[in-house]
Design a protein around this nucleic acid. Structure first.
Lengths: 263, 263
DNA sequence: CGAGGCACTCCCGATGAATGGGAGGGTGGA
DNA sequence: TCCACCCTCCCATTCATCGGGAGTGCCTCG
C-alpha cells in the first residue's frame, strides 16, 4: 500500500565516468561485446559483458540505436546496424586491396584447392579480410574478419618480418602465447624465424596455429613497394609446399602489379 | 617578450556539451563527415565539417584513433579504421542477404547487361548494398553504400509500397524533393504510384533520378515472406522494359527461395 | 495462480570528466 | 620573413552523465 518508498539517505551517485574511461572507450566496449558468433544480444547482456551498470548500458544502447549504429530486431534484441557497414565502406583503403586481390586469390584457390586468405596488419594482429575455401579444404580456424596473433600465424610472421621495426620491438617484448606445441614462443626463436622469412620471401608455419596444418604466406606490396598484406594458404601439415609457395608468389606479384607496382 | 599573456577575464568555459548533444551524437557527427567521395581528411577539417571546436574535434579524433575506429595515414590524415569494417561484418543480417543475392544478381547482370543493384530500407532511405555493372552499362549515379530517397527511386518505391504503414505516413508527410522534372513530388501522386507498384508487383521509375534513365525494381522476400529488399536495374530511358521486369521477378523469386521462402 | 526471474524504463542528486578559448609550436610554401 | 595551416597543451568552469534503486510488464515454473 505504500506507493512511495523512503528515498535512501545513503544515495551515493556519480558523474561521468567513475572508472576513468572516456565516453569513446565505453562506446567501443559496447560494440566489442559483439563477436563473430554473438551477433544479437539484449541490452542487459551488453551491460553485463561490457561491465557497465544495466541502466547505463540501456541508456547508451538506446542512443546508439537512434543514431543507427545499432539496430533492434522484432524482439527488441540488439544487433550491429547497417549504418556501421555503410561507414566501413568509406574506408576504401583495405577494400580496394581486397578488390584487387580477389581475382588472383581465386586463381590460387582453384589451383591449390585449399583455404586461401588475405590478411593485413591491424592493431598488432593479423586481420583477415577475405578467405576462399572449397569443400575439400582441410581444417582452418581462420574466418573473415577474424584475427590471429602475429608471431603464431604465417600471415602474421610475414607482416611482422616486413613491418616497421617498432612493431617488431613491441610484439617481441610482449608475451608470445603458444597455441600449439609448435608455436614459437621465445623472442629469439621468432627473431630467427623473421630473418628466415625475409631471406626466403615467404613464411612457412608448420603446426603453429593447429597441429594438423601448415600455413604458408607471402607478402603483398602496394604501388610504393611497401608490404601491406599477406596472402596465404593453409595446407595439411604433411603436404608438399613448393607448389603453393610458387602460386602465392605469382599471385602476390600480380596483385602488386594491379595496384600499380612496377618491378 | 611577454611570455605570459593576461588570462582573459571573460573566460567563459563549458563542461560536457553546451549544445545539448550527447557524446554518442558527436561521435556520429564526426563519423558522418566521411562520405563516399571524401574518405580522408585532417582533424581540423573534421572539426569544421562537424561544427565542433577544433580542440574538441582533435581530442575526440585522437581518442577514436587509439581505439581503432579511425586511423591515421603517413601524413597524419584521418580515415575510417579497419576496426569499423570488422565490426560491420558482425551485422550478418544484410550481408547474408547480399551473399544469397549475389549469384542471381550476376545472372540478371549477364542477361540484361545493365546496372544491377540491391537495396534495403535504412533510416527512411534506400541503401544500396551491392551493384554490378558492365562497361557498356549506361548512366547511373548509384554507388555501393550509397543512398537514394524512397519516393524518387524505383527501389525506394518498392520498399515504400511493401513497407510498414507508419513508414509511408512519415515519408509522404515529409518534403518530397524532386531530382528531375519527372520525379513525383506530390504526396497523392506518390500514393497512386505505390498502389500501382503493389498491383503490378514491381516499380518502374522513368527519369525520376536522372532524365536519361529508367529504374525498374522488384521486391525481394525473406523466409517469412516479408519484403526486405529491392532488386533493380537501370535502363536507358527509352529502352524496352519487359525483359528486365521478367528477369528481376525471376531473380527475386530465386533469392527468396535461397533464403528459405516457400511459395 | 502466485512467486520469482528477467528485461527494461524512469527518476534524480551528486559530481568530475569533458569542454573550448586561447596560447604556442612546428612545418611548408610564397 | 611572413603567412597559413595543423596540431598540442593548458585550465577554470559547469552541465551532461552516472548509477542505485524503484517500478512495470512479461515470461516461466511449481
Amino acid at each position: 500500500m505504500n506507493g512511495r518508498v523512503e528515498r535512501s539517505v545513503a544515495a551515493w551517485s556519480m558523474a561521468n565516468s567513475p572508472t576513468g574511461d572516456s565516453a569513446t572507450e565505453r562506446l567501443v566496449r559496447i560494440l566489442d561485446t559483439f563477436t563473430p558468433t554473438r551477433t544479437v544480444q539484449t541490452a542487459t547482456e551488453i551491460g553485463r559483458r561490457s561491465g557497465l551498470p544495466s541502466s547505463t548500458a540501456h541508456r547508451i544502447v538506446n542512443e546508439l540505436v537512434t543514431t543507427g549504429l545499432l539496430e533492434r530486431d522484432e524482439e527488441r534484441r540488439v544487433r550491429i546496424g547497417m549504418r556501421l557497414w555503410e561507414l566501413s565502406t568509406r574506408s576504401s583503403q583495405a577494400l580496394r586491396l581486397r578488390q584487387a586481390a580477389m581475382p588472383f586469390m581465386e586463381r590460387v584457390q582453384s589451383r591449390v584447392r585449399e583455404h586461401t586468405q588475405l590478411a593485413i596488419l591491424e592493431q598488432d594482429e593479423a586481420l583477415f579480410l577475405e578467405r576462399l575455401s572449397s569443400p575439400e579444404s582441410g581444417s582452418n580456424i581462420t574466418r573473415v574478419a577474424g584475427r590471429l596473433p602475429l608471431h603464431a600465424s604465417s600471415s602474421g610472421l610475414v607482416l611482422l618480418a616486413f613491418g616497421p621495426p617498432d612493431l617488431q620491438e613491441r610484439v617481441l617484448s610482449s608475451r608470445l602465447a603458444p597455441l600449439t606445441r609448435a608455436t614459437l614462443s621465445d623472442p629469439d626463436a621468432v627473431r630467427r624465424k623473421l630473418a628466415e622469412v625475409r631471406k626466403l620471401g615467404h613464411a612457412i608455419a608448420p603446426g603453429y596455429i593447429e597441429e594438423v596444418s601448415t600455413g604458408i604466406a607471402a607478402p603483398v606490396r602496394d604501388e610504393t613497394g611497401r608490404v601491406i598484406a599477406a596472402l596465404s594458404v593453409v595446407l595439411p601439415r604433411d603436404a608438399e609446399t613448393d607448389f603453393a609457395v610458387l602460386e602465392l608468389h605469382r599471385a602476390s606479384a600480380d596483385i602488386a602489379r594491379s595496384l600499380g607496382y612496377h618491378s
